[in-house]
């Protein structure tokens, strides 16, 4: 079981209800796209899975660690362990990388949770796994930027550095919050495909929030629609139709692209994860 959310709710201190009655579970290796209008609660749900925030109601377990359980009054105060967090990787919409840091350091920072502290310290003086960082960057066509400073990159390049960091981290649970918002459509398509392929190859769970519904439908077997902090629907990509999407985005009051003919996710031609793994490994060396 990758994660289990049972009746999870989150009410902010100011009384704003961000999430309510969320029941969601994912098997290991599942790929789920979260879609829904802005402010629906997608980012909050991802933060919750990333152990960044605690629910105020319901129970949750991530990667078999019972993180939060009980009702509002009896939420367990056990802090998520470092080992657990090292297995969760998050791609942020705006990459949390200081501008003055070099790309190689920013990517290597992905493994700080696995490395012993001394290695993390040493890596500040001399990058400890240049080859690994380069391999991750190469998959995003950024190999030549390895030693650039991040503030010299374009917004799209920086967003892909953030993705490279998570690829390098190799987490068991990959969370992605609008991972391709700064990329052009072609690059966005190939990047989401890369994330999905990486998750599939490593048998990792991937949960991504996406504004581009076509990208979600094309690359994710399972689609979860979120609206007003609640789950609007949760079904295979093939079963998401225009009416459903219309309802989901209704309040935005604008015309939606017709998706009737959009590509739906279909199992890959090559279902052999081991081969994929080998291929990705080859890219690493």
């Amino acid at each position: 079981m990758s994660f289990v959310l049972d009746g999870v709710g989150l009410t902010h201190a100011n009384g704003f209800v961000a999430l309510e009655g969320i029941a969601l579970r994912a098997e290991r290796g599942e790929r789920i796209a979260l879609i829904g209008p802005s402010g629906a609660g997608k980012t909050t749900l991802l933060s919750l899975l990333g152990t960044a925030v605690r629910p105020t109601a319901g129970s949750a377990s991530v990667l078999d660690f019972g993180l939060f359980s009980g009702s509002t009054a009896t939420i367990a105060q056990t802090a998520p362990s470092r080992a657990l967090r090292a297995r969760i990787g998050t791609v942020h919409q705006s990459p949390p990388i200081p501008g003055r840091q070099r790309v190689v350091t920013a990517v290597l920072a992905g493994r700080l949770g696995r490395w012993p502290a001394w290695k993390g310290l040493l890596s500040l003086i001399y990058p400890q796994d240049i080859a690994g960082a380069q391999a991750a960057l190469a998959r995003l066509d950024l190999a030549d930027k390895c030693f650039e400073r991040c503030d010299r990159l374009s917004g799209g390049q920086l967003q892909r550095v953030g993705i490279a960091r998570v690829l390098y981290q190799q987490p068991d649970l990959m969370l992605a919050d609008e991972p391709v918002s700064a990329l052009d459509p072609a690059l966005a398509q190939s990047t989401v495909r890369l994330l999905a392929a990486d998750a599939e190859a490593r048998g990792a769970t991937l949960v991504a929030s996406l504004h581009a519904v076509d990208l979600a439908l094309a690359n994710f077997p399972r689609i979860v629609g979120i609206k007003n902090g609640r789950i609007a629907f949760d079904r295979p990509a093939a079963k998401v139709d225009d009416a459903l999407l219309h309802d989901l985005y209704a309040s935005e009051g604008q015309d939606l692209p017709m998706l009737a003919n959009a590509t739906r996710f279909a199992p890959a031609a090559n279902p052999n994860p081991a081969a994929n793994d080998a291929a990705s490994r080859a890219a690493c060396c």
Binding site: A52, A83, I88, T90, I97, Q101, L112, G113, G120
Partner: peptide, 27 residues
């Protein structure tokens, strides 16, 4: 945010500061 992201990725104490905050504050 950078330091927080690293902390959430399980970085040991001190490293989120060194990787996430210090480079930005250094100048």
């Amino acid at each position: 945010t950078p330091a927080r992201a690293l902390k959430l990725a399980g970085a040991p104490a001190g490293l989120p500061f060194l990787y996430g905050t210090l480079p930005a504050a250094l100048p």
